[in-house]
């Protein structure tokens, strides 16, 4: 009786669900795909380049946090609407395009009067633009200023960009945060007490770097003393991963920061211990209670 009823009802469930699914087939069917990501190549047209540059300015580049490209916006940095117009006169020997490129790649080479030294190279974090993307931004700045868009993406830019696109930028900030750069130099910044890490990933694969962070005694670079570097096993695993990913990226090695990152890594262990102890305590308490109970019965 139970089974028969079950089968009857199961058929009923299938029937009702089937009707709903059928109606679902009757409505118009179409898939919507996300917009295609724009890849800059040497063939990218000028108009498109300008559009991509504009997108970068407000998106990935984060330029508008300080600059403005319209009436409203931030004024921590110079107004970008006039950037291309003033560019040819800024630095003797550099034409407009060259100046704009330089000001993005190496902002400290020339400071516009009245603005402090605060921008980091667009090629580096936090903007972390690729060489081709820098050109796209220049193209946008030129079109914004109303001068002729002269910048051209070369095959070389595009190739470099492909390599650079793999870099991960949060790692750098984390290295500062966890004081790695106190001793190590990376990308030309940091202390000299320990090896320059800019190209370290060329010599050591990510797994080894991770091991070194967890257990500094694992290996030591030749020419340096062992036992100086502290263990970083206590910092979140996700952070270690990010740092390694960043270092790998500097050497053009693809490594995802999220490789083995687990949000459970440390809290998980700690919590597990607490739960384990709680369980054991409870178990003991119960055993004691049962014994008492048995004693009472007898």
């Amino acid at each position: 009786m139970l089974l028969r009823t079950f089968l009857r009802i199961f058929v009923f469930v299938l029937l009702v669900v089937g009707i709903y699914a059928y109606v679902g087939q009757l409505v118009p069917q179409f898939e919507e795909h996300p917009p295609k990501k724009k890849v800059i190549t040497a063939q990218t047209g000028r108009k498109e380049l300008v559009a991509i540059g504009q997108e970068l300015l407000r998106g990935k580049g984060g330029c508008l946090i300080c600059h403005k490209d319209s009436e409203t916006g931030n004024t921590r940095g110079p107004d970008l609407r006039q950037a291309a117009v003033h560019a040819p006169t800024r630095r003797p020997g550099l034409d407009g395009e060259a100046y704009l490129l330089e000001s993005l790649r190496d902002p400290e080479a020339f400071l516009v009067e009245g603005y402090p030294k605060m921008m980091s190279s667009a090629l580096k974090p936090p903007a972390n633009l690729t060489p081709a993307e820098v050109k796209a931004v220049v193209a946008y700045l030129q079109s914004l200023g109303g001068v002729e868009v002269s910048t051209v993406v070369t095959e070389d830019d595009a190739a470099q960009s492909q390599r650079a696109a793999k870099a991960v930028h949060r790692g750098r900030a984390l290295m500062d945060q966890h004081a790695c750069t106190g001793c190590h130099k990376v990308e030309g910044e940091g202390g000299d007490a320990a090896p320059d890490l800019t190209r370290v990933a060329e010599r050591h694969p990510p797994a080894e770097l991770l091991r070194k962070l967890n257990d500094p005694a694992a290996w030591t670079a030749p020419g340096f003393d062992a036992g100086i570097m502290p263990s970083f096993a206590e910092i979140p695993e996700g952070d270690r991963q990010e740092i390694v990913a960043y270092l790998a990226g500097l050497s053009g090695i693809a490594y995802s920061a999220t490789g083995a990152a687990s949000p459970w890594s440390h809290e998980g262990v700690r919590l597990g211990m607490i739960i384990l102890i709680a369980n054991i305590l409870m178990l003991t308490a119960l055993a004691w209670a049962r014994r008492r109970e048995r004693r009472e019965v007898t």
Partner: peptide, 11 residues
């Protein structure tokens, strides 16, 4: 990342 057809979703 795409949005599937309603028919597939209802299935």
């Amino acid at each position: 990342a795409y949005t599937m057809t309603h028919g597939d979703a209802t299935l």
